[in-house]
Design a protein around this nucleic acid. Structure first.
Lengths: 141, 141
DNA sequence: ACAACCATTGAGAATGAGTCTCAATGTCAG
DNA sequence: CTGACATTGAGACTCATTCTCAATGGTTGT
């Protein structure tokens, strides 16, 4: 099942309408760089002569996050950054404060930490955010 | 060396002036709840008849973060939250999305993760952010 | 102690990301 | 096809944070 199909199913299941704006946003999102902000997405839409309002773009991104096709991040003091999510795609981010490079990494021990937290405090974890900031190998020293 | 002394040293070292506004903000910050936002801090200042402008409060918080007396967080979609930092005070946060409760926890394995990242990619970590969102034991189920 | 220099402050304007409004438009079940 | 109602778009709005700049105040050297 591809992204569009998943999105359509999601829309149907929630009694939301299958509009061209929504599908167009999804298409363009999938063609963006891995990490992008809404501003770039809107620029891209404009440059492709797709006239979709800022409000609709924001509204649609929310849906895409909600149906699990996209994840939303906050890196440092900047606004939101989105990232299309692929199956079993579980990673955290390192951001170089000098050049802006983003390194994605996965360390299974993060799950150990979460597991121990749940056991210790009896909480249920729904979501998390884990970012590292520093200098990449080219910028350090 | 107490907080005020550290702050004064910091100011001197950076050729910044030792103003009553700056010291007042520090005093009131130390008397705040563990996690607070700028709005509450400004309210507190007002209620104590200390007239310090919004701009100065923001500017001073930046200094306090820079000199390591306070840490700055972003929890979810909300604005900044500050937290006075004590010696060897290394912890992450769990936030209950239902009741707002904050649990602080420390799991040494977070450092293992960071260590492995440094070795693997040759990066230097300067800072990080790690928050968990979910339901606390009273709100889950 | 004093003057002079320059950092700091405050009030309010400006910014900017994100949200809201509501009339016009589009979707879709029946 | 049509009615019911969800969605869209343009721009107003919000709200946290930053900026501006004239007035104020610390600090240093004498």
């Amino acid at each position: 099942m591809n992204y569009s199909q998943i999105f359509c199913e999601y829309l149907k299941k929630h009694d939301l309408k299958n509009t061209t704006e929504r599908l167009t946003v999804l298409q363009v999102v999938l063609a963006m760089d891995k990490h992008f902000d809404v501003e770039s997405l809107i620029d891209r839409l404009k440059s492709q002569q797709k006239k979709i309002s800022r409000a609709t773009v924001y509204r649609t991104m929310e849906l895409l996050v909600d149906c699990g096709l996209v994840t939303k991040h906050r890196f440092g003091e900047n606004g939101r950054v989105y990232e299309p999510k692929s199956e079993r795609d579980n990673h955290d981010h390192f951001l170089c404060v000098s050049c802006g490079k983003i390194i994605e990494f996965y360390d299974p021990e993060i799950e150990g930490i979460h597991q121990r937290l749940c056991e210790r405090f009896g909480v249920e974890i729904l979501d998390y955010s884990h970012q590292l900031y520093g200098k990449c190998n080219k910028c350090s020293g």
